[in-house]
Design a protein around this nucleic acid. Structure first.
Length: 652
RNA sequence: GCACCCGUAGCUCAAUUGGAUAGAGCAUCGGACUACGAAUCCGAAGGUUACAGGUUCGACUCCUGUCGGGUGUACCA
């Protein structure tokens, strides 16, 4: 149990006096003494015991006297005094003080702090962090790339955040099962199969299967897009522009520059002006979109070979879909192609995971659930949740106008169906208390619909969470894309980070009187710094907000970055080695510790709050609490070294 | 149109979920290198938390409205 947990426990028993003995709170008006605290209230009051934000207020503070005073109808400071009177914490805390409107400030005893620290030092596996008393079972669903499409920048967050959450849960003693829900059965396979049948370059396929499949995917997808733009998007957009032009004209009509305030109130004029502005900017956006689409068309049409290809495959969209459908129906050729394509694609993805140091307990892709989908729809129908609409099987919910479609007009199933089958499988296999989906925020509606449906269907109690995160932006503040507008490939991203790290490492080493790193060592250090920088930058941002991707910032030696954390660690190790300190001996020795300077005590305090940081990560699934903690810890080390040159100290 | 998310220092981001004087890094200014790792450290300056109301002991956080931005919205995943 960490200090915070211990304190909360003691506060809880002190607060219980009001439950067990309601009269205790009553000095004069025993008749009207209604307010007996229930367990839930006590729980919420106990949660108001928190680490202090400011060292002047001690180590921890209890903010509960204010709400409690309100509830009891008595001055908070009086309640605080009574609470302090009942609080038994003198075995590990200094006498608490009351401040301000009724804050109770608590300072841990140095002797207790030292004792805890010694325990942590000798516990090199868990650093003094106790496993949770009641472990839960979690399924964590993250990364989920589409096979056959190269992984891109969009996959980094899900992969890294999901992995971090899973590790933290496991370390805290929970049962956490990671499951990579790979997209290995969708429309993109139809495209690849179509591409293979019509455009494959056999030599290239033998040489580098994944690269050739990726080329085929992009080729077919490009052709599908071309026809889609030409036949659907462009006419629709032109229609929109015409309508928008009319809107602008109307808005202009409503805007009467000669209007007198008497006839048209200023407020109305302002509104009209605003509508006008908005209509115009919308029109400009549509025109921009039009230009983009025309550029894409020109890319094909101005290129005789591509144009010929597009003309020869006019029905490519339908044909590719037909290939997907054939695969799903068990067509022998397509299934055997799928079986050939899948392993090299998975190997490619695994390589990226290895570079990132990310692992999974399971990787049950969409194809795994294929034969369960009909059963899901049947079961939903049986429960009366499904209604047919326009030939599709739909679940209508309050969440939105649009239903959750579980079976298309043509009988095919969708990802909603697969997701439901996945929930069913996970519940049957692992009976989790919670299933976490680490997926970007654009899918929030889908998950709301999915979760509601799952609860109505069969699983009312499981905690289903969409752990959403924001978009990765370029330095221009727009979604991070290459200049040609396609998503930035993940492996190229990692390469770039490593090569920049290599340049920095080399420059620094060359700057020394005598360079100390071999070429091999430089490469190894660059790997660690480059990959670490990307992962850390991702984890350090509050996951719900978008964040700006910047190599310079993530590789900076100062601030809350991986490189700085690695520097700090190296510095500590370096001091150990200069002082010829044997770390293993130190761990078993349990040498006597002293907390003589404020910087030393602050460092000790922060070290012991590691478990609190982990608990915060787990409670709302935000790894940035952990990076914040690490940055704070690194700062405390640096302050400590500044003030206490340990190698020059008289006593060990 | 409807729904969801966001708006914090010049820039990039925090803020323990309603707690005391809103914190870091970059950039700016001023200090510290015969260095326990200067690949750094210490300090200064920088804020009406988009705006206007409300709720209460107490609001960046909750509620209402306004302004600005993003995302999603019937058979892709």
């Amino acid at each position: 149990m960490n200090a915070l947990g211990l304190l909360r426990q003691r506060f809880a028993s002190a607060l219980h006096v009001w439950v067990d003995n309601p009269d205790a709170s009553i000095s004069d008006k025993s008749e009207t003494a209604g307010p007996v605290l229930d367990e839930k209230t006590i729980q919420s009051l106990v949660e108001l015991v928190l680490p202090s934000q400011d060292a002047r207020f001690g180590d921890y503070q209890a903010n509960c006297p204010m709400p409690l005073g309100k509830r009891l109808g008595r001055p908070p400071r009086e309640v605080a005094e009574q609470l302090v009177g009942r609080l038994q914490i003198d075995d590990f805390c200094e006498p608490p003080t009351i401040a301000g409107p009724g804050f109770i400030n608590v300072r841990l005893k140095d002797s207790w702090l030292i004792g805890q620290l010694q325990k942590a030092v000798t516990d090199d596996q868990r650093l003094g962090v106790h496993p949770v008393a009641s472990p839960r079972t979690y399924v964590v669903d993250y990364s989920s790339p589409n096979v056959a499409k190269p992984m891109h920048v969009g996959h980094i967050r899900s992969t890294v955040i999901g992995d971090a959450i899973c590790r933290v849960l496991k370390f805290l003693g929970h049962r956490a099962i990671s499951d990579n829900h790979i997209g290995d059965w969708g429309t993109q396979f139809g495209m690849i199969i179509y591409g293979y049948k019509h455009f494959v370059d056999e030599a290239a396929f033998q040489e580098d299967t994944v690269a050739e499949l990726s080329r085929l995917y992009q080729l077919v997808n490009g052709l599908v897009e071309y026809h889609d733009i030409r036949d659907q998007q462009l006419p629709a957009l032109e229609q929109k522009i015409t309508e928008q032009q009319q809107k602008v004209e109307q808005a202009e009509g409503a805007l009467d520059p000669g209007a007198t305030p008497a006839v048209t109130p200023p407020k109305e004029q302002k509104k009209a002006a605003k509508r006008m502005r908005q209509a115009k900017s919308q029109l400009a956006e549509y025109r921009q979109q039009l230009a983009d689409l025309q550029k894409k068309l020109a890319h094909v049409e101005d290129h005789p070979q591509r144009a010929a290809m597009a003309a020869a495959h006019a029905d490519i969209r339908a044909s590719a879909l037909a290939e997907t459908a054939a695969l799903h129906e068990g067509d022998a050729t397509n299934v055997s192609l799928w079986k050939r394509f899948l392993p090299p694609c998975l190997a490619e993805i695994d390589e990226t995971y290895q570079r990132l140091g990310v692992t999974f307990d399971h990787a049950l892709g969409e194809s795994f659930y294929h034969d369960q989908l009909a059963g899901v729809v049947a079961s939903l129908t049986e429960k009366g949740l499904v209604r047919e609409s326009d030939g599709a099987q739909c679940v209508f919910l309050q969440e939105s106008q649009a239903p959750l479609i579980v079976q298309k007009q043509d009988g095919a199933y969708l990802y909603a169906t697969t997701d439901l089958a996945t929930i069913q499988y996970r519940m049957r296999t692992w009976s989790p208390d919670a299933i976490l989906y680490v997926v970007d925020h654009r899918q929030s509606l889908h998950f709301r619909q999915l979760f509601t449906t799952a609860r109505l269907w069969a699983y009312p109690d499981v905690e289903l969470e969409h752990i959403s995160f924001g978009t990765v932006l370029g330095e221009d503040g727009k979604p991070y894309k290459t200049r040609s507008g396609t998503a930035v490939g993940l492996s190229g991203l990692l390469n770039e980070a490593v090569s920049r790290a290599h340049a920095i490492v080399s420059a620094n080493d060359d700057g020394r009187p005598e360079p100390m790193l071999s070429a091999d060592q430089r490469r190894q250090v660059a790997q660690r710094i480059g990959i670490g920088a990307i992962k850390y930058a991702d984890l350090a941002h509050n996951r719900t907000s978008d964040y700006v991707f910047s190599y310079d910032k993530m590789l900076a030696m100062t601030g809350n970055t991986a490189a700085y954390m690695q520097y700090s660690y190296a510095r500590v190790r370096s001091i150990f080695s200069r002082g010829e300190v044997d770390i293993r001996a130190l761990r078993t020795l349990a040498a006597p510790l002293g907390l003589d300077s404020p910087a030393e005590r602050a460092l000790a305090m922060t070290l012991l709050q590691f478990s609190e940081a982990l608990e915060r990560v787990a409670s709302d699934y935000r790894p940035n609490h952990l990076t914040n903690y690490l940055f704070q810890l690194a700062s405390r080390y640096s302050e400590f070294f500044e003030q206490c040159p340990v190698l020059k100290a008289d006593s060990p």
